[in-house]
Amino acid sequence: MSQPSPPILSVRDVHRRYRRARTSLFKPPSEVPAVRGVSFDIQPGQRFGLVGESGSGKSTLIRLLAALDHPTSGSIEFEGHRISGQPERRLGFLRERLQVVFQDPMGSLDPRMRVRDIIAEPLVAARKPTPPDRIRELLTAVGLPDDAGDRYPHQFSGGQRQRISIARALSTRPSVVVADEPVSALDVSVRAQILNLLADLADEYSLTLVFVSHDLSVVRHVCDTIAVMHHGELVEMGATTDVYDNPQHSYTRRLVAAVPTLRRALAGVSAAELARAVTAADPEEDEQ
């Protein structure tokens, strides 16, 4: 692959093993390999989708990408600077350039802070000025009214809280936004609003988007590249249309087969057929 521009994020043979709690005085504690030998590049402006089921290691991987955790071995570079294994004092630039939007907006917004202060907090942490104009501009960008800044998170609905999280993520003018299941906790009608907003903002601010989800149809809509994780390994990666329409790995085939869609259901695909398709895609993997 000869890319004209260098990758914005570069992951090389990254492993992350966690230690289980000790079960015996005399034996070493057992280890859980959460991420096993993952390598990939993310180009500037790319919309990179990371798909996997619970326990696949996708959450561990994004914690590593955001340098909230460090790999057991391997390296991660952001804009050419090594971020893996670096102490927090060397990661100031990353905290400005890369921001995260979490799944549960209630768990990631401090209930005792006003929205204005929540949005300004990344700037405060970076010892940057926080002009009131900037807060208003951010609120407008995510479609919240000006007076929202004076209120507290509990006064907002789930979708509006996710808008607050997004405004906070944009405050430092990052180049990369990592969104970890940003719409999983939202209702259908609100989910579409937030997905549209993320797409608009990615265009407007030329963001690189790393979008993590268990929902293949959502990732397919948002992303141009899909990476599929399974048991801590990256089993398949490629352009969205290729991966979705012509999955190569048996696990990806399973995943694609398992997703119920309205179109398929109205065409008469029953639950029994779905279950059969899942088993047929990869009989060995089936947990029964």
Binding site: R254, A258, A271, L274, V278
Partner: peptide, 9 residues
């Protein structure tokens, strides 16, 4: 999702 398909069945 893969578990869901079996559960629905």
């Amino acid at each position: 999702v893969t578990v869901q398909a079996h559960m629905l069945d």
